[in-house]
């Protein structure tokens, strides 16, 4: 890479202005753990790069919803206990030193099978606040993934907004090693129950497609049902049947598909056994 310009804007205003002026050729990076790696190998050869470390988006605030600045590091999120599933997901990602650099916003752009925090955010129905020079809009995270992570030209991801969980949450990352390991599959589940009956189910899977995805058929099977051995097995089976995971250096698609069933059974069983 022979980069001609490296910008380090000191504010969000400055950043969106630069982005508007420079156009789509300006490569935007936050923690650098995705972009720098590709540039070091010569796989990405941009002329101009903008780093977001100084734009002041690195704080977590609570005002009804949890608002996570896009450049909040995974370490900061791991140390914030306001939503346990999120701190757990952040802590499960990569290594200590990488978590000190990688950002929550960047994690939404991490390619499969990375994106552990993104998976938990998807299960929690997070929204993205996206801004450009003229204003802002709020975009459901699910839509962002459905659109293959494309923002409009000139747009920057500013914050991730997380509604407080209404039910029980369980996060389970299954990798080849105990720590610092990419996912074979990651499952984040948010289940709301009224008495015996499931009233809302949100299950996000990672490692099974190009982006984290919701296990819609499994969710539909659970709503209106009690959680028991039978409903859990059926939902886990449905989730496994509806995915066609890719094979990579971490695991084969064949294995991942089977692990979706196994891990989802464990996750739902854990929820069933928890105090509501």
């Amino acid at each position: 890479m022979i980069v001609k310009d490296y910008f380090l804007p000191e504010s969000l205003d400055e950043a969106v202005t630069l982005l508007a002026e420079r156009g789509p050729d300006l490569l935007v990076m936050a923690g650098g753990t995705i972009a720098m790696m590709r540039m070091n190998e010569g796989h990405l050869l941009p002329d101009q790069v903008m780093g977001l470390r100084r734009v002041g988006l690195d704080a977590i605030t609570i005002n009804g919803k949890l608002s996570i600045g896009a450049t909040t590091t995974l370490s900061t999120l791991a140390n914030n206990e306001s939503v346990p599933m999120l701190s757990q997901a952040a802590r499960s990602a990569a290594s200590w030193s990488l978590r000190n650099m990688a950002t929550v916003g960047g994690n939404l752009f991490a390619r499969n099978p990375y994106g552990d925090v993104a998976t938990a955010l998807l299960a929690l129905n997070a929204d993205l606040r996206v801004i450009n020079r003229n204003g802002e809009r709020v975009l459901p995270l699910a839509d962002f993934f459905a659109a293959n992570r494309q923002l409009e030209p000139g747009e920057l991801l500013a914050d991730i907004l997380v509604p407080p969980p209404t039910g029980q949450t369980v996060y389970h990352k299954f990798g080849r090693r105990a720590y610092n390991t990419p996912a074979v599959v990651t499952i984040a589940a948010h289940i709301t129950r009224d008495g015996d009956s499931v009233t809302a189910a949100s299950i996000a899977l990672n490692g099974v497609a190009a982006t984290p995805v919701r296990a819609i058929p499994a969710e539909k099977m659970l709503v209106g049902q009690p959680l028991n051995g039978e409903t859990i097995t059926a939902a886990a089976q449905a989730a496994a049947e509806t995915v066609d995971p890719p094979s990579d250096a971490v695991a084969s698609g064949w294995y991942r598909q089977r692990m979706v069933r196994v891990i989802l059974e464990r996750v739902l069983t854990q929820i069933m056994e928890q105090e509501q």
Partner: peptide
């Protein structure tokens, strides 16, 4: 970096 471990291969010096 300020006492925290980071990976210098991914860190622009200007940062």
């Amino acid at each position: 970096l300020n006492g925290e471990p980071v990976l210098s291969c991914l860190l622009p010096a200007e940062d």
